[in-house]
Amino acid sequence: MAENELKQIVSQLDSLKANNLSEAPKLLSRAKLALLNLNALVPTEKTQPQHLALAASVLEYGALISIRLQDTDAFTRYFQQLQPFYFLPSDRSPSRRQSNQGKVTGLYLLLLLSVGDYAGFHTVLEGLEASSGKEQIEKDDFIQYPVRLEQALMEGSYDKVWGETKGERVPSEEFGVFSEVLVNTIRSEIASCSERAYPSLPISNAKNLLFLDSEGAVIQFAQSRGWVAKEGRIYFPQQEEEMLAAQKDVMSSSNVVIENTLGYARKLETIV
Rank of each mutant, 00 (worst) to 15 (best):
Q136F: 15
I137V: 15
I137D: 01
I137C: 14
K139L: 14
K139Y: 03
D140A: 05
F142E: 09
F142A: 07
I143A: 03
Q144H: 02
Y145E: 10
P146W: 03
V147P: 12
V147I: 14
R148Q: 15
Q151G: 11
A152R: 06
A152H: 09
L153E: 09
E155W: 13
E155P: 02
S157C: 10
S157P: 09
Y158F: 14
Y158C: 06
D159Y: 06
D159F: 01
K160Y: 12
V161D: 01
G163S: 15
G163C: 10
G167S: 05
V170C: 07
V170W: 11
V170E: 02
P171V: 01
P171A: 07
S172D: 11
F175T: 00
G176C: 07
V177T: 06
V177C: 05
F178P: 01
S179V: 07
S179Q: 03
E180S: 04
V181R: 11
V181C: 00
L182D: 04
N184W: 06
N184L: 08
R187N: 00
S188W: 03
S188A: 11
S188Q: 08
I190G: 04
S192I: 01
P199N: 07
S200D: 08
L201Q: 02
I203R: 00
N205E: 09
N205M: 03
A206H: 05
K207D: 01
L209K: 04
F211P: 04
L212N: 03
S214F: 03
E215S: 06
E215L: 05
G216N: 06
A217Q: 04
A217V: 02
A217N: 01
A217E: 09
F221K: 00
A222C: 07
Q223I: 10
Q223T: 10
Q223A: 10
S224G: 00
R225M: 04
R225W: 13
G226H: 05
V228G: 02
K230Y: 08
E231R: 10
E231S: 10
E231W: 10
I234F: 04
Y235M: 12
F236T: 11
Q238N: 09
A246C: 11
S254Q: 14
N255R: 15
E259F: 12
E259W: 12
E259R: 15
E259C: 07
T261D: 14
L262I: 14
G263I: 10
Y264K: 15
Y264Q: 13
R266N: 08
R266V: 14
T270F: 11
I271F: 13
